[in-house]
C-alpha cells in the first residue's frame, strides 16, 4: 500500500522508502549539488553504517557528532555548522534521516537539527530496517562529498532550546501539566532502573515524574517500524490518554532518544502546538535530590 502522509499534521516531515529510491535513481541524493538531498544515517550502533548503508548516505553519529564531548549538552553553533558543512549540507538543504532501532536515533538527530532551526529535515518512515527488509540496495561505498566552505558553508546559528527542549527546572515548573513517559512499563513503575536488556545507566531512584502518563514509544509504531496512521495515533494519545494538542506537553524517557520519537509523533504527525523533549530524562530526574517521584 502506498504511504499516505497527507493524513498527518506535517506530511512533509516523512518520506517513504519508495520515494527515497526514486530520488536515488534520479541522481538527486548525496551529490552535494545545491538542489540535492542529503541523506544521513544515525544509529545506536556506531559501526552499523560501515557495514552497509543506503547509497548516498553519510553517517551522523549522535555521540560523536551531536553531543558535546565534555559537558552533558549538545554541540554548539560552530561545531554544528562544521558537522553540517563537512557533509555538504547548507541551511536550505533537504535532509532525510534514517537509522536503526525504529529510527530512535534518527528522530533524536532530527530533533537536535530542529534545535538549530534547520527547516527541511525529514525522517525515512520505517528506517533502516524497512529499507533492508524490502531487499533494497545497501552499499559500503562512502560517498565523496565536497565540504561546504566560505559563503556556501552552513551558517553559525545559535541553538534555540526554549521551544522544544525542557530542562529539569522547566519540568518542575510544568508539574501538574501533561507529561508523557515513553519508557517501558517496568521503568515507569520503578521496578527497573533501565531498559529491559540494556545497561544500567545509574539512576538512584526508580519511578516516574508525578502525573506522567505512561505511553511506551513503541505504541506509535507498526511492526515494520513505520508510524501508525493518524487515526490510530489519535486513539492512543488523545482519546485514551486525554492529551490535548493545544496544551503544552513534555515528553521524556531515559536519555531523550526514545522521547524524541514521541516528540516527533506529537509535533509532526498529530500537530501538537507545544511539545518539549526533556532530554535530561530519567538519568537526571532519578538522580536529583528532592525532586518528587511517583511510583
Amino acid at each position: 500500500m502506498a504511504s499516505d502522509f497527507t493524513q498527518y499534521a506535517h506530511p512533509d516531515r516523512l518520506v517513504s522508502t519508495d520515494w527515497l529510491a526514486e530520488q536515488i535513481a534520479a541522481g538527486k541524493v548525496g551529490t552535494g549539488a545545491d538542489d540535492s538531498i542529503a541523506l544521513l544515517e544515525s544509529d545506536e550502533d556506531v559501526l552499523l553504517y560501515d557495514t552497509g548503508h543506503i547509497p548516498g548516505a553519510l553517517k551522523l553519529d549522535w555521540h560523536q557528532d551531536l553531543n558535546d564531548p565534555v559537558m552533558r549538552d549538545y554541540v554548539d553553533a560552530e561545531q554544528f555548522a562544521k558537522v553540517m558543512s563537512e557533509r555538504g549540507i547548507g541551511r536550505d538543504t533537504t535532509v532525510v534521516i534514517y537509522g536503526d532501532k525504529n529510527n530512535w536515533w534518527a528522530a533524536y538527530a532530527l530533533w537536535v537539527m530542529s534545535l538549530f532551526g534547520h527547516e527541511d529535515v525529514r525522517l525515512l518512515d520505517g528506517g533502516r530496517a524497512k529499507w533492508a527488509a524490502e531487499g533494497r540496495e545497501l552499499t559500503k561505498e562512502v560517498p565523496s562529498v565536497t565540504a561546504r566552505t566560505g559563503d556556501a558553508a552552513y551558517p553559525v546559528v545559535e541553538r534555540d532550546d526554549a521551544p522544544i527542549r525542557a530542562f529539569k527546572d522547566d519540568v518542575l515548573a510544568h508539574l501538574g501539566g501533561p507529561l508523557v513517559d515513553v519508557r517501558s512499563p517496568g521503568e515507569f513503575s520503578g521496578e527497573l532502573l533501565h531498559m529491559p536488556d540494556y545497561p544500567q545507566e545509574g539512576a538512584m531512584r526508580g519511578g516516574h515524574i508525578p502525573g506522567a502518563k505512561s505511553v511506551p514509544w513503541a505504541r506509535a509504531a507498526n511492526e515494520d517500524g513505520t508510524f501508525k496512521s493518524r487515526d490510530e495515533l489519535e486513539a492512543i494519545y488523545l482519546t485514551e490518554q486525554g492529551l490535548d494538542p493545544k496544551e503544552a506537553t513534555v515528553a521524556y524517557c531515559r536519555i531523550g532518544e526514545r522521547s524524541s520519537h514521541t516528540w516527533f509523533v506529537l509535533t509532526h504527525l498529530l500537530g501538537f502546538d507545544n511539545v518539549r523533549n526533556y532530554d535530561g530524562s530519567w538519568t537526571e530526574w532519578g538522580n536529583s535530590v528532592r525532586v518528587p517521584v511517583e511510583k
Partner: peptide, 9 residues
C-alpha cells in the same frame, strides 16, 4: 547479531 557490529567488534 550482525546488526550489532560494535558489540561484535
Amino acid at each position: 547479531p550482525p546488526e550489532a557490529p560494535t558489540t561484535r567488534g
